[in-house]
């Protein structure tokens, strides 16, 4: 199992695929593989990022390795992940096509045990609400890179509240701050992908 942990930590997708197949051959259940190797590896790389020892490219590589392993496991788990921490609907807001940060947050959340519905970019408030309802989501995550699109986040927060949805809203993106998040009525803010997981866990605790 250490082989899978290492492959994800070091961001080596082909090795992660081999390692997960070996783990299955050794009669490990998909859920145990996720809980014992994959989530700890993603937690470890996240901690290294927080400590300033690795950088965004390393997170991207680990996220990709994790996803490649997860793709093998998902079809084997017909009932889905039995121990998800919660369901997250995530997207970059309308008028904004930037998605590297948003995708990284999505991967980090998925890699740490959340079910993630990624709506892509240029997402309208109506689409966020529709997807949150369809998936019975616990959190909506909004991303924006541009100062010209961050204001749309307030429109989304207002629309979600007006709809009466009982759901937490997290926001993130380069020009955002905690003050901005508070001012638009968001429940959570994070300045990077690793912190987003911590915030999401806290919001659902």
């Amino acid at each position: 199992m250490d082989k899978l942990y290492d492959a994800i930590f070091k961001g080596m997708a082909p090795l992660a695929k081999t390692a997960v197949l070996e783990a299955l051959d050794n009669d490990k259940s998909p859920q145990d593989i996720i809980d014992e190797s994959m989530i700890p590896a993603m937690e470890a790389i996240g901690q290294e990022f927080e400590a300033g020892n690795v950088f965004v490219p390393n997170l991207l590589l680990s996220a990709r390795a994790m996803k490649s392993a997860l793709e093998i496991l998902k079809p084997l788990m017909m009932a889905g992940l039995t121990t998800t921490l919660g369901t997250v609907v995530i997207g970059t807001v309308k008028g904004d096509l930037h998605d590297i940060g948003k995708n990284l947050v999505a991967s980090m959340l998925e890699g740490r045990g959340f079910k993630v519905i990624n709506l892509g970019t240029d997402v309208s408030k109506e689409r966020f609400i529709e997807a949150a309802k369809e998936n019975n989501a616990d959190i909506i995550c909004l991303s924006a890179l541009l100062t010209t699109t961050m204001d749309y986040m307030k429109e989304i927060v207002d629309a979600v509240r007006a709809d009466g949805l009982d759901i937490k809203i997290m926001v993130g993106g380069a020009p955002l701050t905690q003050d901005f998040a508070t001012s638009i009525g968001a429940d959570g803010y994070s300045s990077n992908a690793n912190e987003a997981v911590v915030v999401a866990k806290k919001l659902l605790s």
């Binding site: 309308k94 096509l97 240029d122 749309y152």
Partner: peptide, 11 residues
């Protein structure tokens, strides 16, 4: 390049 609605740039 794409300039979506409500955007002021070509991404």
């Amino acid at each position: 390049c794409h300039m979506p609605e409500r955007c002021y740039f070509f991404d």
